[in-house]
Design a protein around this nucleic acid. Structure first.
Lengths: 155, 155
DNA sequence: AACTCCTTTCGTAATAATTACTATTTAGGA
DNA sequence: TCCTAAATAGTAATTATTACGAAAGGAGTT
């Protein structure tokens, strides 16, 4: 569970960002971010919509997508879980990476100093200037592995 | 330019894979792979379709997508360039990573022993078993940087 | 408070990539 | 050559995401 304190910290940061950038800190935007910041599972747009609707029943699809784009553009949230059918989101702006289960699409966070320290190869510097790194470890999660065991029988 | 020899090597490997796995090595599949293996630009499905149509005018959209999925599932090709609107493909199965220009979506290949050697954090081993790594460096390519210079004037 | 201006939202329609369906064709073994 | 399961063509359907126009909302001013 994510501590409420941290969620509110992220929300407060966002409100501050809005003020600085002259963007309105609307109820909808705040609730969308609050919902995302309180999730550990990196939900997709549809999931966020469903949850925020519990608090703001009339919120529209358009607002969800528009807001997610806005937040992403401002660097408040990030898009994770590459190239699946639906985009997944993450409000954790601390430096970290992801493990993705290719079976159930579960996404987990992890940190790695080693990864963060890797120098950019010269080869790449010649292509252009690097501004960000996206690392994703892919595999099968604990839960799916156990499920496979039960189905096929243990090795 | 990619040497014809290498393209044909990949095609031959695919034909072998088909035999081993009991999948039919059709003309369409072969041409799709041949086209992709001969491209350095990591084309999307639509681009591949257009090019293969020069040789097989009647090939259908369905076949393109179905085949790309098949090749991906068999590990013959990979999907790259995360979470943009269209998927991009890569027939290079040698270990390498990608640089993606966030402006023009150009994708370039590079190798990095340092990246390949990074150990999987314990934290991740607890989530599940890692079977693959996807690394993407993001930034602005040479060409786009120059274009920006001309537009806004040099710094 | 009333007025104005500009942003944002809602509700829904439109778009675009990808997937599904069915009749027909084809690859590859007997 | 013949047979059968697998694959394809052509097109329809699906799904995520984006766009649009009318209405609502917030902030500053009078």
């Amino acid at each position: 569970m994510i501590p409420r304190q941290q969620v509110e910290k992220r929300v407060a940061e966002f409100l501050e960002t809005c003020r600085r950038q002259g963007v309105k800190a609307t109820h909808q935007r705040t609730e969308i971010l609050r919902e995302l910041a309180g999730s550990e599972e990196h939900p997709d747009a549809e999931t966020i919509l469903a949850r925020v609707r519990k608090r703001i029943p009339a919120i529209s699809v358009d607002t969800i997508y528009r807001t997610l784009r806005l937040l992403e553009d401002r660097g408040v949230i990030a898009r994770v879980g590459s190239m699946r059918d639906r985009a997944r989101f993450d409000a954790n702006t601390d430096r970290h990476h992801h493990f993705v289960c290719t079976e159930c699409e579960m996404i987990g966070d992890f940190c790695s100093d080693a990864m963060d320290r890797i120098p950019v190869p010269l080869e790449v510097s010649e292509m252009g200037s690097v501004e960000g790194v996206y690392v994703e470890l892919r595999g099968i999660c604990r839960k799916c592995k156990q499920k496979a065991m039960k189905t096929k029988g243990p090795t």
